[in-house]
Structures are given as structure tokens and as C-alpha cells.
Simulated assay, not measured.
Amino acid sequence: MGAVEQKGQALVEGAIALTFVIIPLLILLPYMSKMTEVQHRVSEAAQYTSWERTVWKNSRPSLLPNNSSHHSAIMPENDIAMRIPWRFYQKNGLLISSENRNEWDWDENIHPLLKSQTTRNSSNDNLLSLTDENITDGEFSRFERTERSGKTPGSIGSTIDYAVGLLSFTGLNLDRTPYYETDVSIKLQNHYLEPFDQLNLSFKGNSALMASGWNAGGIDHAEKRVKKLVLTTVLDNGLVRLVQRIGGFIPFGKELRTNSLKFGHVAPEILPENRLCRYGTENCGG
């Protein structure tokens, strides 16, 4: 009898564990995978947009030559935000487009992991809710994004900002707002999950960077900015060059010639050309 009772007890314990532990876990694991995917993508979107702002400036950089052939790396906020669904929410197999020429369709292009059963006996629907019920569905309709930039935070940052401000006496105007912070948030539709009737969840990603934005507007612009910090630039004038030319005729004075000894010399050719353009122009998103 004892052995029979033990077998019966084990059977009951197994049935209870199966009912209240194993089956709920089997139901929750796929769902938790979807929620992890939502949080992962919104975090990636926040990191991406804060980084892009350090690359593409908001306004025209200082000391930019008055020449139409020189451009600065500038992109509007909306154009950066428009890339979020194309890069982080589309299903596998679709090309990432920098042009965004085709209209984005959240229901058609969204990744399958971001779809779930929203009501009883329904098929999988888009989990991401519209930010505003009255908004027209499009690139910006299912996420919200805020961007902030400012001075270096903290007391140490204020000291650094003051030190950088002193460089303005040399004529060099550096960017004094190197702090970039971005928030991206997603709200899910009320959706169905056994044994819960409706779930209303939201996810938020935040990213902050401290970086000097890439604001060179061409070779001439970069050269002008750097020369302000080269001390020998004060010797780059006509009188000194005349003395160099005269000294070059002296025996053993070849090194004094202007083609050998260049005061205030800067070589900006090492800059990457693909970042020296204005967004929207030819060969630069235009």
C-alpha cells in the first residue's frame, strides 16, 4: 500500500506542477521573448539617434568659408527620426534605405516578433500602438522621440566649459554644447494573454553621449579652425616669408625657405570626405 500511495502522490504532484508551473512557463516564454525584443529595439533606436546627432549638426558651424562649394554636415531632426522604423522595426529581408523613398507601412513591414494576439480568437496583430488615435499611420506614428543637447553637466563640466570658452580669445569658437541625450518610447496596444484579459505596457530607451559633433565644413573650414591653435601661425605673414626667402640664399640656409619651413602649417587632407557635405545635396542624401 505504501508504494501505491507514493506513486499516487507523485502523480498528483506532477499534475499540479504541470498545471501551475510548466504550462504557464511555456505560455510566458514566447511572450517574454517578444517583450525583450521590444525593449532591445527601443534601446537601439535611442542609441542610434543620439550618435547620429554627434555626426550631423543642427546648425551651420563657425568660420565656414563663404563659398558655395563648402558644405557642413547638417541633417534635420525629422530626417534622423524617420530612419528609426527602417533600421530597427522592419522584418528580415528588407533593405535598409537611407533615402526612405517608399512610404513605410507598420503592419506590412514590421518584424514578426513584434506581432501578437491582441484579442481572444484573433490572429497576430501589430503590438505597437499609435501615439495618437487621430494621427495618420506613417513613419512617426508608433514611437515618440525627444532629443536634448546642452553644456557639459556637473561642476567639472562647468570648469571645462569655462576653459574652452577662453579659447575664443584666439578666434577659435568650439562647440560648447557637447552633451546629447535622446529618449525613444513605444506604447503597446492593449492585448490578450492567458490568463490576463488585457495588458497595457510601454517601453522606453534612453541614451546620452558626450562628444564633439563632427562639424567640419570642408578642407578650408577645418584648416581655419585648427590654425587658431597653432602658435607659429603668428609668423605666417609676408615679412617673415621675405626673410625666409633672403635667408634661403645663404649657404646651408635651404631649410629656411618657405617650401621647407612652413609656419602655422596644417594638413587637413586626412579628414574623411564622406562627412564633409550638407545633407540633401547631391551625393549626400539628395
Rank of each mutant, 00 (worst) to 15 (best):
L261H: 10
D183P: 01
S50T: 06
S168E: 15
P195D: 11
T118F: 07
I74G: 02
F88L: 06
P24Q: 01
Y180L: 02
K228Q: 15
E147K: 08
L94R: 10
N237M: 01
A216I: 11
G138Q: 13
T19W: 03
T159S: 12
L172D: 08
I80N: 02
L18I: 01
E99C: 11
L94S: 05
L128T: 08
I27E: 00
A10P: 07
I250L: 02
N134A: 14
G217Q: 06
G157H: 07
V42I: 09
N121T: 10
Q47D: 10
Y192P: 00
D79T: 09
D125Y: 14
R257K: 09
G248K: 05
C284F: 06
K187V: 13
N274R: 12
P195N: 11
S185F: 06
V234T: 12
L166F: 14
N78Y: 14
N173V: 15
P251L: 06
M1S: 15
T258N: 11
D105C: 04
E99A: 09
N121C: 11
S50E: 09
R257T: 10
G247M: 08
L271H: 03
P65K: 02
I156K: 12
I22D: 00
D175F: 06
E37Q: 08
N67S: 08
L242Y: 15
Y180N: 04
K228N: 13
N121V: 10
A222Y: 02
D161N: 12
P65I: 02
L172E: 10
R101M: 12
G247T: 03
R41E: 00
Y162E: 14
D125N: 13
Y192C: 03
R53H: 02
V42Y: 05
F88Y: 08
D137S: 03
E5M: 13
P268I: 07
V38A: 03
T170H: 04
T119D: 09
S50R: 04
R142S: 09
E103W: 09
L64W: 08
W106V: 02
S212Y: 15
T232A: 01
L276E: 05
L18D: 02
A81I: 01
W51S: 13
D125V: 11
S59Y: 11
K224P: 07
T19L: 00
R148L: 14
M32G: 03
S62T: 10
M82D: 04
L64S: 03
I16F: 07
P112N: 03
T258W: 11
T36R: 12
H40W: 09
S98K: 12
C277A: 01
G253M: 05
R257V: 04
Y279T: 06
L231A: 13
I16L: 02
E282N: 12
G253R: 05
D220E: 14
D197M: 04
A216N: 09
E133T: 13
L209M: 10
T136P: 11
P195K: 11
